[in-house]
């Protein structure tokens, strides 16, 4: 047998070790959005304020908006909330998707902490959440003028994420 054959295991192992090294700095729990570059799913859900007022896909503003998935049982949402309020003050349009929550709790939360949302969708059973592929709150979706999902952020939306991830995409969308 040729001598190089004995080198093969070493070569394979080195390749494996390099991949494993990469893997160490890799967060295996982050999921990409399957819904990326797809139109926001059709829905018809009540608003948070009253169950008789129905919000549908048509009610979403035809501009660049954020859709923020939140709930009062989610502690990171509490952490995220002040920044959302600040963004709203700056004129960013944010739609709230209240996910698998209790109406009274959610209303009290908004009253106490301020309401950054232009529209509040009440998704008690999580049906829209399922259509979006939500797997935990908070999650934030960026929609373009045509209602197509351009970006999804899982976890707390921090000023850093806003500046580094979302603003560049928004710039492109505005210019494009």
């Amino acid at each position: 047998m040729k001598q190089w054959v004995y080198l093969l295991p070493l070569v394979l192992f080195i390749a494996l070790a390099i991949v494993l090294w990469q893997g160490l700095s890799n967060d295996s729990r982050l999921l990409p959005a399957a819904m990326l570059n797809q139109p926001f799913p059709e829905f018809a859900l009540p608003s948070l304020a009253s169950s008789s007022q129905i919000i549908t896909t048509k009610d979403l503003p035809k501009q660049i908006i954020l859709v923020n998935v939140w709930a009062t049982w989610c502690s990171s949402c509490l952490q995220e909330h002040p920044f959302l309020v600040e963004l709203a003050k700056q004129g960013v349009v944010i739609i709230g998707l209240n996910y698998k929550d209790k109406r009274a709790d959610a209303l009290a939360w908004l009253k106490q902490l301020g309401n950054p949302y232009q529209l509040e969708i009440f998704d008690a059973k999580g049906s829209l959440g399922l259509d979006l592929g939500v797997y935990g709150a908070p999650e934030t979706y960026l929609l373009d003028q045509h209602g197509v999902i351009q970006y999804r952020h899982v976890g707390v939306l921090t000023p850093d994420v806003w500046r580094q991830r979302l603003i560049p995409i928004i710039e492109v969308l505005k210019n494009g």
Partner: peptide
């Protein structure tokens, strides 16, 4: 489900 959550 794959359409919503991906191949994962």
């Amino acid at each position: 489900l794959v359409a919503r959550y991906g191949d994962f």
